Simulated scan of single mutants.
Amino acid sequence: MKSKLLLAASLLFTANVAFAEGERVNIGDFSKGSIAGWEVKEFAGKTNYEIKYQGNRNVLTAKSTNGAASALGVRKKIDLTKTPFLNWSWRVDTPLPPLKEATKAGDDYAARVYVIIDGGLFVWKTRALNYVWSSKPDSRGQKWNNPFLPRNARMLSVRDSRNGPGQWLTEKQDVAADFQKLYGFTPRSIDGVAIMTDADNSKGIAAASYGDIYFTAK
């Protein structure tokens, strides 16, 4: 769906927000049992997002059935010159079959975390960088343009199907450096973060779990 990523910017309210500062900037404190401040954006049905207690901690679970696709996002302006590293943990619980993810029919992911530069009224200036758990083998580290919005959304495979279901994995990505690699420029800030588990294009079923999300200086 063409609007799935571009309209995700509407999760980011148009009001100006001061920079979040500190050595660690918390984005999603799911371990505290809350998704306060996060907002759902529905595209094709509704992915079920809820806090559940798993393995001695609270996590955010996401399940897409009947080809559902909705994002969960929060607006928070992050100064990448001070805290450029995005940290999170995740687990795929129900993987999708191998998809041709660079095509419109295969643009689904059991788990993704993405950051957004909001173009505001100039929607065409919105940029999204998607960190995805690919359904294909041997795709870790690969990057490609989103098939619906090649100028506005870029994809980077952080994990692939070799990392089977049920494995908790921890990630750290240099967002400023990744924008340079995928877009050719280094932003000083981003405007928000979103997650999405979706299966609307492949009409499949997908489920994942997400741990806390935060930015750090190093």
Rank of each mutant, 00 (worst) to 15 (best):
K46E: 12
K77P: 02
V132I: 13
K136F: 00
A111W: 04
S134N: 14
M155C: 13
K41Y: 15
R57F: 09
G33A: 06
K76N: 02
F43M: 09
R140Q: 11
A128V: 13
S34G: 08
S135H: 04
L80Q: 11
T61K: 03
A69D: 14
R159D: 06
I51L: 03
G55R: 15
N58Q: 06
V74F: 08
V40W: 01
N16H: 13
V115S: 02
V158H: 01
A62M: 08
Q142K: 08
A153F: 03
F43T: 10
V17H: 14
I116Q: 00
E101I: 04
V17T: 13
Y114C: 10
T94C: 04
E101T: 12
Y131H: 05
K52N: 06
S89V: 01
G141N: 00
T126K: 03
K143T: 11
F122M: 15
R154V: 06
K100F: 05
K46Q: 15
S139E: 15
R151F: 00
D118I: 03
S135T: 05
V92R: 04
R57H: 12
A71F: 06
K46F: 01
R151K: 12
N58L: 07
T65L: 11
K63V: 14
Q142R: 09
S134R: 01
W90G: 15
T14S: 15
R154E: 03
E21K: 15
R91N: 07
W88S: 08
A105F: 08
G37F: 01
N56F: 10
Y53L: 13
